[in-house]
């Protein structure tokens, strides 16, 4: 059942992105920014976490989830460390994803050359 929920919710979120791309001519870079910012706001409101609890990876894998992670990181850090958490919480929570992304990008760049489409 969690697989079906993940599939449907994840698919629907991607369709939102596709409609934005086709209807507004937004480039993929803008879509990524928009999704993270929206996810962060929805996360701050506490709404997105409810979707994550319902759909699991269907909500956490799309970039909304990345924004949600930033927001939740900030909020839980504030609970623990006070005002300093505003600055440290976000990236701390997202650090794993970002670090792995840049390290593996670096390794791939060392191994591979660009390929024509």
């Amino acid at each position: 059942m969690d697989y079906l929920k993940a599939f449907v919710v994840g698919g629907i979120i991607c369709v939102i992105g596709q409609i934005l791309i086709d209807k507004t001519k937004l480039t993929s870079a803008r879509i990524l920014v928009l999704f993270v910012v929206c996810g962060c706001i929805l996360g701050g409101l506490g709404w997105y976490q409810k979707l994550v609890e319902f759909a699991g990876a269907g909500a956490s894998v799309p970039l909304f989830g990345f924004g949600n992670t930033l927001a939740r990181g900030v909020m839980s850090e504030i609970d623990e460390a006070g005002v300093m958490g505003i600055f440290t919480g976000g990236l701390k929570a997202a650090s794993g994803g970002i670090t792995v992304a840049i390290v593996s990008a670096f390794v791939m760049a060392c191994i591979f050359d660009p390929k024509e489409k």
Binding site: A29, L32, V33, C40, G67, L70, M75, I86, G90, I98
Partner: peptide, 29 residues
């Protein structure tokens, strides 16, 4: 080359993500 351009798409994502999270944090605090 590699070092600077690695962030041409991810840079804005991280920047605006962090800015939004700070705004969320301030409101939450």
């Amino acid at each position: 080359g590699l070092g600077a351009k690695i962030f041409i798409v991810a840079g804005p994502v991280i920047l605006y993500g962090v800015l939004t999270s700070i705004a969320v944090g301030i409101v939450y605090y």
